[in-house]
Amino acid sequence: MRLEGVELRRVTMPLVAPFRTSFGTETTRDVLLVRVVTGAAEGWGECVAMSGPLYSPEYTEAAADVLRRFLIPALAAAPRLDAYAVGPALTPFKGHRMAKAALETAVLDAELREQGRPLARELGAVHERVPCGVSVGIMSSIGELLDAVGGYLEAGYRRIKLKIEPGWDVEPVRAVREHFGDVPLQVDANTAYLPSDARHLARLDPFGLLLIEQPLDEEDLLGHAELARRISTPVCLDESITSARTAAAAITLGAAAIVNVKPGRVGGYLEARRIHDVCVAHGVPVWCGGMLETGLGRAANVALAALPGFLLPGDTSASDRYYRTDLTAPFVLHDGHLPVPAGPGLGVEPLPEVLREVSTATEWIAL
């Protein structure tokens, strides 16, 4: 392929309801989209960085800057252009995995569109639809939480994930378990606890949770391994897993019984597939996390979640979980599942009228 240019586009997407975690509350998503144009096709990628460096060191403005100044010029100078060449071309630049993932995804989308091949088939998917879970943010009251969970179960979601933090953990979990019975239930701490909280976190064990996600700091693999020995709830790692190498290390240390794969966090869908393969080789189940993606990112996540090692429902919710109007044709839940896109590349593209309405800035970088 020949790279003619790259468009960086900012869009603002209001959420249907505020989404609160231990990192803060999101009411809108300031999304950076990357569109690459080649001689034969164009492709889209979505950067999942937040507006501030709270979930990770990356944030939207920094992602746009590093793409503009370093990553896109490096890719343009590469001797060949295909998705597998993106990673090596960008290796000299440390970190910035979310920006790298957006650029790699756009190249991969363009390449597969040109060849008429779906992303799901390229990654090795074995399912035509995937079961969906939903992530429930921290609420202002138990009653509000129960109303939200009840609505999601009525909509057909196959698994409930509760965000927790100190002061909002045991009692919300108890309330959901007692009210809804044996619903598949897990919790996500987003690094909110300390190793000294192990005894407190063990109070979650009686509720039969599928897992507790990232309870400790992302760099504390040894702390997670020790916590895993002190509680019976399986420990799942999210922020700690940045590559296939870190996944292998976490598994070897006993720090992760389950792994949450977020493609943006690990540098793209090709590295996400490598993490999947490492986990499958070690008998560790994986599932696909979410970052409030639009339909572009959701399409790619659903394709990834159709791989054989994704044994738990992911945070691949329907479009209306987050957005009244999605960038693409909406993803609609059917019997608790979403269909895997079957068209070339991502299998979806932005709706022009919606894209115009939500865009706040565009920048064309000719190459």
Rank of each mutant, 00 (worst) to 15 (best):
E219L: 12
G223N: 03
Q214P: 11
F207M: 07
P206F: 03
V284N: 00
G264N: 07
I160G: 04
E239M: 12
D205G: 11
I251Y: 12
V173E: 05
D277W: 01
N260W: 12
P234W: 13
A175C: 15
I231W: 00
I142R: 10
R174G: 04
L221T: 02
V278I: 14
L209V: 13
I138P: 02
V259S: 01
S141F: 07
Y193H: 10
D182Y: 00
P215Y: 13
L162G: 02
Y269T: 05
L162T: 06
G268T: 03
D238A: 06
P234F: 15
N260D: 13
E165P: 05
G283K: 06
P263R: 04
V284M: 01
E239Q: 15
P234D: 12
A192P: 08
Y269E: 01
D188W: 15
K163C: 06
A255V: 04
Y152W: 07
L201K: 06
P234V: 12
G151C: 06
A256M: 12
L204Q: 15
P184S: 04
I251V: 14
C279R: 04
V170F: 04
I231N: 08
L204W: 05
N190V: 00
L201R: 04
E213M: 08
L270G: 09
R203C: 04
V266W: 06
L209Y: 05
T233G: 06
K161R: 09
A256C: 09
V259Q: 03
L216Q: 02
D182I: 00
P166G: 02
N260K: 06
A248Q: 08
L237C: 07
D205F: 05
R229K: 09
I258V: 13
L185A: 09
G264I: 12
P215H: 12
G283W: 03
D188C: 04
I231K: 10
